[in-house]
Design a protein around this nucleic acid. Structure first.
Lengths: 271, 271
DNA sequence: ATCAGTTACGCTTGGCGTAATGATC
DNA sequence: GATCATTACGCCAAGCGTAACTGAT
């Protein structure tokens, strides 16, 4: 199970084609075919069905492992090469959209990225620091995927609110339980609000089905949609201005600063 | 960063010697030397100091990654080979010492193993099921290392108690906060009580220093030591019989059943 | 002088590309 | 017959072992 073979395998699975995977990786079709054949011989099973090229159940299981393995391999390499090179004089900070906070952002060069890319970016060393947001119980840590051992520091916790349209029957409640909203109409806006997947894992249910999907990162636009009644969204309280919004019980919106431990970054510039 | 190279690297680091690592892996010393040289050339740093053979800081960092990577590689292979073979007619269940429960154990073939080995055993397929215990907030999951995606089910939660000697000033308290005991004298008994490392991570402090270390798995013996005043220990309440024991606030002893998801094991024999 | 890691060197094998073959729509 | 995966084959390089070498104790 050479990493090269795994890399080709995930490329094949993603592309759905040997030849496309080959050109993407800079191999010939032949080499890709041999890679897959080698993996299949090694594991004693077929991993992809051909025509169409689709992973078998065994292949799907392998895919679940291959991603994290390759990610961690990259993370290890990145960490060590960083230790060798002189520390950069400019920090690159990755932000998930809702982790934005004016006072922290002022001093550094930042890039706004999807949540997962912030985590992998820090792990792989393309980012020096990451600020990721998510939901958690008060003063509990976020449930981040541990692609690599990371140092995390909570930097903010704000109330988590659900945005209702003006005329919604629950809009005047003082607080509300997340589980009570599992069957409501939701907008899935993974880039500009809390992704519904996080609600499911936080509540342990599989409700929170999306009536609508919003790919943009423009929060005011999303707020208008929610206010107009197209569906519910969850946001940290400071980002909701004047609209009817009810705090969620026992959950907060939390922002964490993540970094590779003891990689030279010990203190954080505060202005 | 071929897995073979990583494997020899961890062997070298563990053995503290190229030649011992070589004989352990079935290579010649020369091959091991070439492996290390290849890794060092690839990463652009020296990874071990020679004479004596000790990892450099960069090597230590690599070691932190290499273990999990190799473990997950093995886990992936084991999972897939298990999918291919017919399911075994006998389940092998791994138990961490304090996860023992008579009603579950009756029907299966079990092996009692240290906590970490239960997790890795399930991941690598040497165990079909694992029962691991630990401490957590009530109805919260255990904080298990995620070497592979695992299905976990909570199977028991009992009060967590600290065992005091008869004359201890706190022995008559109704309940006690774990943090208040950080500076007490503890017995570290990782095989037969809650390891102190778990207390530190649960409380977020670095207290709970061991006055004594007990390697055995014989709980009654450990209880006698605690009763005699050699130090405090933490146990699930049902295992403490008649001795002065005070429940810990906001923490419980939890047992979880872990398995590889949808690997054919959907229900558990109940008799 | 001995022990332990490194380097040199030859051999084998693995792995890639080119090109021919085979299968599927 | 066009497209895409597989097989055949030749070539190069990676990787192992044997053995000579180097440095440290």
């Amino acid at each position: 199970m050479d990493p090269h073979l795994l890399r080709t395998f995930v490329a094949v699975a993603r592309c759905g084609s040997f030849s496309r995977a080959a050109s993407e990786l800079g191999y010939t079709q032949s080499a890709v075919s041999q890679h897959i054949a080698a993996l299949e011989a090694d594991l004693g099973t077929s991993l992809v069905n051909r025509r169409p090229v689709v992973p078998t159940p065994e292949g799907q299981r392998l895919l679940e492992h291959a991603g994290p393995i390759l990610l961690r391999l990259d993370a290890a390499r990145a960490e060590i090469t960083k230790m060798v090179q002189a520390p950069p004089d400019r920090l690159v900070v990755g932000l998930s959209p809702l982790a934005f906070m004016a006072d922290i952002v002022a001093a550094n060069h930042v890039r706004v990225l999807p949540r997962a890319e912030v985590v992998t970016g820090v792990a792989q060393g393309t980012l020096d620091l990451g600020l990721v947001d998510g939901i958690a119980a008060p003063s509990d840590p976020l449930n981040l995927p541990d692609v690599a051992p990371m140092a995390t520091v909570g930097v903010a916790e704000r109330p988590l609110v659900v945005v209702f349209p003006h005329d919604h029957p629950l809009a005047r409640r003082k607080r509300i339980n997340l589980a009570d909203l599992a069957d409501a109409q939701w907008i899935d806006a993974p880039e500009s609000a809390i992704p519904l997947a996080q609600l499911r894992s936080a509540s342990g249910t599989d409700g929170f089905r999306a009536a609508l999907r919003y790919e943009g990162t423009h929060v005011p636009g999303l707020l208008q949609m929610a206010a107009a009644g197209h569906g519910l969204i969850l946001l940290p309280q400071p980002m909701v201005d004047g609209l009817p919004a009810v705090p969620i019980t026992r959950l907060v919106h939390r922002v964490e600063l993540i970094s590779i431990p003891s990689s030279g970054v010990s203190t954080i510039p505060t202005h």
